[in-house]
Amino acid sequence: MGPNLIANYGEAIAMIMFAIGMGNLLLQKNLIKKIIGLNIMDSSVYLFLALKGYITGRKVPIVVDGIQEVTAYINPIPAGLVLTGIVVSVSVSALMLSLTIRLYKRYHTLDLDEISLRLRQEGL
């Protein structure tokens, strides 16, 4: 173990959340729960990025009093990256949920094993 585990507890929590989401993705059979797992993974990445940009004692990068020194503000780049991530995550969630609705309308189940069994029975 490295020296900074205690100081980096937030990032460690983000990584554990990532693993929890991945476990959901692998172990759940219900498609909706799989999508929830993917969203947990997304959120952990946002947490990690937000913590990467944080600097102790500095302020939000909004120029209020005309101060324009680097030592006054936190890093603005991770904020922009998190914004991109959130937008893409919303789109991907909507797409996956609508595909799930179509699958449910056709096979009347959300269980992935049953769906693949029926697919094999239909010869696809």
């Binding site: 490295g2 020296p3 900074n4 585990l5 937030g10 913590l51 890093n75």
Partner: peptide, 26 residues
């Protein structure tokens, strides 16, 4: 999953401290 979590947490423990100003990203 446990392997992935252990690997990631091990890597996080070597990252610079949260809130430090002297990081590669800054």
């Amino acid at each position: 999953v446990i392997l992935i979590a252990a690997l990631l947490v091990y890597n996080v423990s070597w990252l610079p401290k949260t809130g430090a100003a002297e990081k590669a990203v800054n």
